[in-house]
């Protein structure tokens, strides 16, 4: 990223923080603004974690309802976007716990493929340099675990729920993913 890009991100986050502060003071229009600034990227990213668009919609709704209720709890120790994502991914897991996601035909849902590929494009873009190359070579199962824990910041327990595999499997895969990365990056 160039310096001006970093400045732009910082600027956007400053605006987000101001909005969160206004939400904490019960300003509904601030909530709407925050929603409109973030829903468009959160929705496809959640969809890359869960194939059921209905569950994703409910997770998005729950996320902003709890933002409204708990804006005071935002401590400001990270970007607002990251805070939102942390809430959203956990709301998604809550939704998935209530209802096991139905499998969706990927060919039938055109837009979804695009969303699924998001993390891959990020990796392909070379943003992460040799790490990106190493991630690309990773087995998809291992990569999913790594993304859930390292990028989404979930615990192994939460990742297990999200991916629908036992917690032990998540731990083993995580260990294997780390070994792979170490070997490739060495």
């Amino acid at each position: 990223m160039t310096n001006s890009e970093i400045d732009a991100v910082g600027q956007a986050d400053q605006e987000d923080r101001a909005l969160v502060a206004r939400i904490a003071r019960r300003d509904r229009s601030a909530l709407e603004q925050l929603y409109r600034r973030h829903a468009h990227w959160m929705t496809p990213r959640l969809e890359s974690r869960c194939g059921d668009p209905d569950l994703v919609d409910m997770a998005i709704q729950d996320t902003f309802v709890s933002v409204w209720k708990s804006a005071k709890k935002y401590r400001g120790d990270g970007a607002v976007g990251a805070w939102l994502w942390g809430i959203a991914i956990r709301r998604l897991i809550d939704q998935m716990r209530k209802k096991r996601p139905t499998s969706v035909d990927l060919q039938a849902v055109g837009g979804l493929e695009h969303a699924m590929a998001f993390e891959d494009t990020l990796i392909d873009n070379g943003t992460h340099g040799s790490l990106g190359v190493a991630l690309r070579q990773l087995d998809p199962d291992l990569r999913a675990v790594l993304i859930a824990t390292a990028i989404d910041g979930l615990t192994t327990k939460e990742a297990a729920r999200l991916l629908g595999v036992p917690q032990g499997t998540v731990k083993t895969r995580l260990m294997r993913a780390r070994q792979h990365l170490q070997e490739t990056l060495a």
Binding site: R28, L31, E32, Y35, R36, A39, H40, W41, T43, P44, R45, D57, I60, Q61, F64, V65, W68, G111, F118, T121, L122, N125
Partner: peptide
Amino acid sequence: MSYTTDPARIERNWRAITIELD
């Protein structure tokens, strides 16, 4: 990187949020 979400879906979810809050 481009993220796009159907604007109608954005509106629908916002309406659901306001209903829940109200």
